[in-house]
Design a protein around this nucleic acid. Structure first.
Lengths: 200, 200, 200, 200
DNA sequence: GATGAATGAGGATTCATTCAT
DNA sequence: AATGAATGAATCCTCATTCAT
């Protein structure tokens, strides 16, 4: 593959990702992407078999990047609480600084999920697994009391995702300061969880 | 308007709502709705100016119903904590027993929000306002310590929405028991919040 | 259905049939049909679900017309030889005077046959069945000696179809007079068959 | 041209021929051929000017091979009847043992004939000419009585082609045994013709 | 109220072909 | 001799919407 080709592939992904974020996936068409990229629609098919392939690549990339970001930041030499906070922090930071990438991860709606390869879907759960491990570690060390670490991990993630989504989807009351909202929410999710375990 | 007409309008809304839930909004077309309703596509335009109008009506209806459900349940004679728990309970119950209506409320994505009437958007915030009032009441009664009730209310709502979305969108790990997950999550969100305020 | 609608449906069929004959099925597209009909491509879909439906309708119509033509001409009061000759005569006349309809019957190539409804396919065999019956009748009356009437009928039909195809596909040497060729060929197919049985 | 190149050219022809037979000419594309051959689509253009050129080469090759097969088998030392039967036998055997090559000869439909070089078209008539000669010979020897040998030859060929086509296109009733059908049909075409001339 | 007919714009995808390398 | 990149034109088909009835 020539450099140019790699560039075009990346360009298509970048622009698609951006369009997806700013205009929604309803209006995203191969044609519109091609027009934005400044290339014929046919050319996109030189790099992606079809629209699904393109979309799935975008999702996979984002999942990969988010997972890597978290894996890199989490230091298993740190104490469990620090690791725990690090995961949540990194996750949030990724979402806020790469909103277009974060949103893509949740693009796969139930309707389209049937078409998303099961194996890639499993990958998407990598970062939750990490959270599960940390909680399990915490429980083993007697720092947390949690009868069901998997459920706990998913609950934390769900709450966090709720908070981030609300911000990214601009569903927040205009009176509310976004970063304040996020800080408070994370604090609530985290502290609430830890305090409860600490106290016990 | 004859009774029949009213019936048709309702039928269109009902079927659209159901189709939206079971087949996703990608495949929802005026034609497909008409076919399901058993009426010509043109007839839909007698009741709704266009597709947006139909969709907006659906959203408005769901918002209205959810708001009313909460308003009806909340009894300002009760103590603040009971009111607080009642809101969260009712919200969750509505979402789980009317998933197709709940999902519609969040149908309006950022990209489409420009087209959603600002005035209807404000209505959608009615139920959060209620939560804000309860918290403010709690703060006034010295039961909660919360410097920013609006932010707190939105944070709780966001977390709750995250939890519910994950369940409805079937993003939960298959190992997790749904109702257990919800119970635990609500407990975490509520208790965490209240305990913290109670303790203080 | 309004008269206009019926007209359009017929017009689409007529023009498609004609285009199929004069330009081949390779270049036949919904667009090209629409252009010839003087209507938008979309309009065709008001009368036919898709291209296959249109094509199948054309085939079915031709099969029906050919079958009916033969059934109407064959008089079972006539003696067997007269019936036999009548079938061959009518078949040939239909093919030569409605070449575009005749060709359509053989449009269904092996590749496309999978998509052609099995039940309609059976209908297409109606006219061969008639030939089979006449031969069986002849055998019963001792006028023909034929151990396998079905094979005999199909053989006659295949030969006749070969002769007609060659003429319609313009594969004949320019030195040959078409009607002379057909007359001679039919004579050969028919007489050969009858003489052989008569003599016996 | 290197040996490799010749190989590629042959490989393209072989695979095209095979694809044409097994998948039909509708789905035959330069790309699909290239993929099957394991070469870039562009490479095909190094050996054939365009798709038509490739197709025409295939036809020409098949015509050539069929003609040669007949020419080789026919021995003008044999008596006329033997020659006659030999031609029909060889033609049929070629068609049945090389169906993909036989079918290609009749690929050129009326609509495409305009594009098929007139000079190559003439070549395709070589094998009929042979039949004409044998008949003329027979007439001269007083073995056959045929006022128009050219018409007779084309008639025989047309009938034979009809029989073979029906078999190859799988248009035969499932109750019919193929080889029995062919044997009977050939017998009918041949004997009928010869008997009539013999008897006279 | 209700509808059948009609359409322009756009959807994904495939095609034969060219051109620079 | 071979190819990767690129494309314009074409494919079937669906969409929201309008209009005369």
């Amino acid at each position: 593959m020539s450099e140019q080709a790699i560039d075009l592939r990346e360009k298509i992904l970048d622009i698609s990702r951006h369009m997806l974020y700013s205009e929604g996936h309803t209006s995203l068409s191969m044609r519109s992407i091609a027009k934005q990229v400044g290339v014929s629609a046919t050319s996109i098919y030189l790099h992606f078999n079809n629209k699904d392939h393109l979309l799935h690549t975008l999702i996979e990339e984002s999942v990969e990047e988010l997972s890597r970001a978290i894996e890199e930041k989490v230091d298993d030499q740190q104490d469990v609480v620090a690791q725990f906070e690090s995961i949540i922090q990194t996750y949030t930071e990724f979402a806020l600084s790469h909103p277009e990438k974060y949103q893509i991860i949740y693009l796969v709606q139930p309707e389209a999920m049937a078409r998303y390869p099961r194996e890639k879907f499993r990958k998407a759960r990598r970062c939750y697994e990490l959270l599960v491990k940390v909680i399990e570690q915490g429980v083993r060390q007697g720092l947390m009391e949690e009868d069901d670490p998997v459920t706990a991990a998913y609950s934390i993630w769900a709450q966090l995702h709720g908070v981030i989504s609300v911000v990214l989807n601009q569903r927040l009351d205009s009176r509310i300061n976004k970063s304040h909202f996020i800080k408070k929410s994370i604090h609530h999710i985290t502290e609430g969880f830890l305090i409860r375990t600490h106290v016990s």
